[in-house]
Computed example of a mutant assay.
Amino acid sequence: MTETSPWANPRLRAAWARTDWAAILREYRRAANISQTALAGLVGLSQADVSLIERGRRTVRESAVMTRITEGLNVPPELLNLSASASTWAPDPELTERIARAHTTGRTDIRSADWIARVLAEHRRAEDDGAGADLWPVVRSQLDTVTRLIPGASGPTADKLLLLSAEHAHWLSWVAHGQGEYGAALAWLGVAHGWALDAGSADMASWITRVRSYYQLGAGDPVRALRTAETAIGGGAGLSPSAASIASHTAAMAAAAVGERDRAHRLADEAYEAALRTPDEDDRPGWLYWLSPTRARLLLGEAAYAARDWRRAADALGDGLAELEGYPRDAAFYMAKLEDARRRA
């Protein structure tokens, strides 16, 4: 697969996970920018058949037709056999067994992992639009594919695969938490943290610890959240500026929740200044693609709001909100805080 493959499209991959043949054909055409006639040529059907399937007037039941569509559209290997565990929320023990055999002597083909890393980046953006639950079985299956490569890898290649596994586990934790599966969310975080440490990634280990703090704060335990966020900061040793930024922001939110307003302001300022040191997305870890200077300004306003500094919150939120076009869920979240801060200022 290449970066330009239609199968990088999250909607297409989600349609495959649902075995929704009508959506598969529609989304493939949209992603590939081809006509029904061109698609028909790929899958060995007539244009009329493609039209009927897309409109729900014909149901795909024949195995021969399924095979023609699968082969004609060049479905990537990690989607061909979605694992049985892909429908469950919690991690299964077999994953840990695979990881335990990492760093053995061996050679493995890293190209499939590079492809999966590419599509995971697309899934992160899709999750921003609320499509995480639809993509759950796809990402879970991708994780299976990555971990199967690990026993045959060593050195930097094994580290790369371990980090990619940790990124997947974090994504699964985040989506599980959003679905109210809190125990599974914590279990995935535990798995992700171990893999991040094995990979030698201070940034990912810090990020996962930060997410745990976020969960704790949301559950109404700000004291524990503050302690956990301080661990995520870890003195800043070995952390990239963006990883240190988001850890400090989380600590600022927890400090505000326990009533330490001065500490919250200091941490929020540190977070903002650190974020500004990596304004370009390519200079940030992949999972922090969103931490632009605009987002950093919004986080500064969010921390000020949590500390009940209404004027500062209104100024910072007002500065950043105008640039959230295309993110309706985030825009609504910050707009509500901005309007409330302005009323209270």
Rank of each mutant, 00 (worst) to 15 (best):
A257V: 05
P93T: 04
T278M: 08
T108E: 14
S141R: 15
A133Q: 14
E230L: 13
A121T: 15
P241D: 13
E302M: 01
L73T: 02
Y182V: 07
A307N: 08
L226K: 08
L143G: 09
E181T: 05
R101G: 03
D134C: 04
G301V: 07
E54P: 05
H103C: 04
I24Y: 07
S206I: 04
S112N: 07
K160E: 00
E167A: 05
D198N: 03
A313C: 14
R148F: 08
S112W: 03
A296H: 06
L52K: 13
A31V: 12
L73V: 01
T294G: 06
L39I: 09
D128T: 05
P77H: 06
A345W: 08
A113S: 07
S213V: 13
E270M: 03
T4N: 09
V146Q: 06
E230N: 12
G194S: 05
W207Q: 13
A84E: 11
E270H: 07
R295M: 11
L321D: 04
T157P: 02
S240D: 11
A17L: 10
P285I: 11
R11M: 13
S248V: 00
L338P: 00
A153V: 08
P279R: 11
A336T: 08
W89D: 00
G238E: 11
S213G: 15
R26F: 07
L189T: 05
E97P: 00
A17G: 06
N74W: 06
V146I: 14
P328L: 02
G194L: 06
A336L: 05
E62T: 06
W290E: 10
A271Q: 03
A251S: 09
P137S: 13
R284A: 00
D109G: 15
Y327A: 14
T59E: 14
E94D: 15
V223T: 12
P76S: 12
Q142R: 03
Y272C: 07
P279L: 01
L299D: 14
A199R: 01
A40K: 01
P76F: 08
V223H: 14
L276Q: 11
A229S: 11
A345M: 09
S292C: 09
L82E: 01
G72E: 00
A158F: 04
D282K: 00
W290S: 10
Y272F: 15
V50H: 01
E127L: 02
